[in-house]
Structure formats: structure tokens, C-alpha cells
Design a binder for these strands. Sequence first.
DNA 1: ATATATGGTTTGTATTTCAAACTAGTTTGT
DNA 2: ACAAACTAGTTTGAAATACAAACCATATAT
Lengths: 109, 109
Amino acid sequence: MDEPIETAGALRDLVEVDRLLHEPARLVIAAILYAVESADFLYLLRETGLTKGNLSSHLSKLEGAGYVEVEKTYQGKKPRTICRMTGQGRTAFAAYRDRLRSAADCLPD
Amino acid sequence: MDEPIETAGALRDLVEVDRLLHEPARLVIAAILYAVESADFLYLLRETGLTKGNLSSHLSKLEGAGYVEVEKTYQGKKPRTICRMTGQGRTAFAAYRDRLRSAADCLPD
DNA sequence: ATATATGGTTTGTATTTCAAACTAGTTTGT
DNA sequence: ACAAACTAGTTTGAAATACAAACCATATAT
């Protein structure tokens, strides 16, 4: 025996929160993409304050989960990476946001 | 060159959130201990729904950070582990809670 | 030609998280 | 009295993460 014991409580729901979005760096990326329809790599780089390496790997993770689509284009001779949140990503983000808000509400004062 | 670029935005503050408390399992433990003055291992086990192994190691981590004090006593012949949040832990929890709330508020709808 | 900048990706290390396995002692059953 | 099972935890080992440094391809400036 070593399984969790059954109990009630809204706080406990936090434990099952979406870990992909719970990571602060990814939450910031996701919040931006949720709001803007599309954004390119350099815009996200400026807005999030992440390093290029981190932005790249977090984006890949969001892409791998189907939350974000990444399109590689060229702007003249320069590469331009455009990111969009998918429907799946929007649904997941909204759910995470709502969970987070109700969790924040039930934390003790 | 590969440092973060300077930019404004309240969302970005999330990235510097207290990782110790941002972990959902630990946040649940911390929220309980913040509210109750003291709680024993078995109470926390029931309330959090964590496994014993996880509860034990998360408590150790909170203890290592100085957020929680752990006192081992006996209740008759049975071991009883009593946990209390320290002043430092209370301060950190309140700060995390406030940051989380303002982050939750500025997420897009 | 060589150096430097742009727009990213890959790699390596250190840390985390989790549950399974373990420990130490106690109670129950026969 | 002896073994089996239970209680109250801790330790361990494997898998996943998170981060920045190092790298790559192409373009531009000297």
C-alpha cells in the first residue's frame, strides 16, 4: 500500500494543474499568444525577457503539446518565426487560468 | 551575448516567483500550515492526498528552506511528527500568494 | 577575405519530482 | 513465543525539467 488517501478540498485540485502551463516562463508565453493571434520569435523574446535558448525550448515544448503552432518564414533575407496558439492551446490556457484564479481565491489570508 | 533583454510588463514578474512554493504539492502543504498553527504528518497526508514519500520529501525541502519546523515526538508508543510554519515561511507564503493573485488578475480573458 | 551581427537550435549539467522500496518499531493472531 | 501484518515515516533511483552556454547558418560590413 502506498496510494493517496481520498479526501475533499478545493486546494487539493491544485496538485492536478496543467504542468506545462504552470511553468512561469511558459505561462508568460502562453498568456501573450492567447491575447495576440500571432507573434514572432523576436517579439516574444522582448516581451518575455527570456533568453533565446529558453524561449526556443519552451516554444518547442508548447508546440509538442499541440498548444502552439510555429511557422518558419522569411522576411526578405531574414528568418522569421511566427507563433500562434491553437484551439487546443486556448482551451488549455483558459482552463489553467480559471483553476489558478480559484486556487488563488482559496489561499488563506 | 545571450542575456535577457530589458522590457516592462507585470506578467514578466511571474518568472521570478518563489519556486519552492510554486510547486503545487508544496503550495498545498504551505497553505494548510499557514492556516493552522500546527499539523501532524498524518493530518497533512490526509488533507493533501500526497503519498507518504512525497509528503516526507516536500516537508524536508520546506524545512531546509527554513519555511517549516518539524518536531518529532511520541504519542504513547507511536511516532508523531508535528509541523509548523516559521515566521520566514509565513512571510514567503504571503508574498507568493499576493504575487499569484496579481498574476492571475492580469492573465487575459 | 575576415569579422561581426542576426535569428534561432542543440547540448550539457544540475535540479526536480515522483513512487517504489526500505527502515524501525508496534500490535495482532495463534 | 513467534511470525505476520500494520504504522509512521525516510531513502533511493529513474525519468523529466530548466537553464544558459555553445553552436549553426546565413547575411552584412570592413
